[in-house]
């Protein structure tokens, strides 16, 4: 299905991601440039993310996909040499504004990492961690149960919540990390290749989960797997490496359209497997 060849459209869609002028985006980047030290990583990225949709980010290795994802919850600034210009707007507020506390941003924009990273604590404590650090005073048992159910893990672990999170299988660990992220009730969930360390069955479960979660929150997922992007996402953003060596956003469009009628020849080359 990704082999359809359509004549390339004019590539003017690059800087105007919402082609019909919609402004209902929950997250927007404007003129986003990013450096690690002297390495130019992202060049002038303008991208809109719509609420309650799954947005997939695809592109060849080294095009700055993960870096781009981490711009949305200010994780990049944990690296000392990181530098960002431009703006990332979340609910009409620039999260890089001086007055904004990154801790508050990360509460609202959760993240699941490439390699499952449960804390060396019990399953219960893993899920309760987020609510605890954010000062949640309510019924912790309930929030743990709800979160594990939302992450489709409850039935497998409900009888031994005291067991270490590290004792679970890789796929279960990743769902535990999703439950952990959901427990602080974020509006957006960032996923950085969440299935790359998992076997196909575990991957399928996570993909099903992503489709269910779409009803409740906005998901941005970086994936190396174009089939996965096609299966689970509503919109897809394609990044590639520009002449400058930095990653650029080539186009973002409805997944269906991007894979069938890409507007940019670079996108077409990538999805048909002629490059990357």
């Amino acid at each position: 299905m990704i082999n359809l060849r359509i004549d390339a459209q004019p590539a003017d869609a690059v800087a105007t991601p919402s082609e019909n002028g919609q402004t209902d985006a929950i997250l927007m980047t404007r003129s986003l440039n990013f450096w690690y030290g002297s390495a130019y990583v992202l060049e002038n990225v303008n991208c809109d993310v719509r609420p309650r949709e799954v947005t997939a980010i695809i592109g060849p290795s080294g095009c700055g996909k993960s870096t781009f994802l981490r711009c949305f919850n200010r994780m990049n600034e944990l690296i000392p040499t990181a530098r960002l210009e431009g703006s990332v707007v979340f609910r009409n507020r620039d999260i890089y504004d001086r007055a904004v506390d990154p801790v508050e941003v990360r509460r609202q924009v959760g993240m699941v990492f490439q390699k499952p990273n449960p804390f060396p604590k019990s399953i219960y404590e893993n899920v309760a961690y987020g609510p605890r650090v954010n000062g949640y005073k309510g019924d912790m048992d309930e929030i743990v149960e709800t979160s594990l159910k939302r992450a489709a893990l409850w039935d497998e672990v409900k009888d031994d919540l005291k067991k270490s999170g590290l004792a679970l299988s890789g796929g279960q660990q990743q769902r535990l990390c999703i439950a952990r992220a959901l427990a602080v009730q974020p509006d957006v969930l960032l996923m950085d290749e969440p299935c790359s360390a998992l076997d196909p069955i575990a991957t399928t479960r996570i993909e099903d989960l992503i489709r269910e979660l779409r009803e409740q929150l906005t998901i941005i997922i970086v994936t190396h797997n174009m089939q996965q992007a096609a299966r689970i996402s509503d919109r897809t953003a394609f990044f590639t490496v520009a002449e400058s060596g930095a990653g650029v956003l080539v186009e973002v469009n409805d997944t269906q359209k991007l894979f069938t009628t890409p507007t940019d020849p670079r996108t077409e080359a990538y999805i048909t497997g002629r490059f990357g």
Binding site: V103, F119, G130
Partner: peptide, 11 residues
């Protein structure tokens, strides 16, 4: 990865 996991939850 544990530090990042913690930060990502708003710690």
């Amino acid at each position: 990865s544990l530090r990042e996991g913690s930060y990502a939850l708003g710690a």
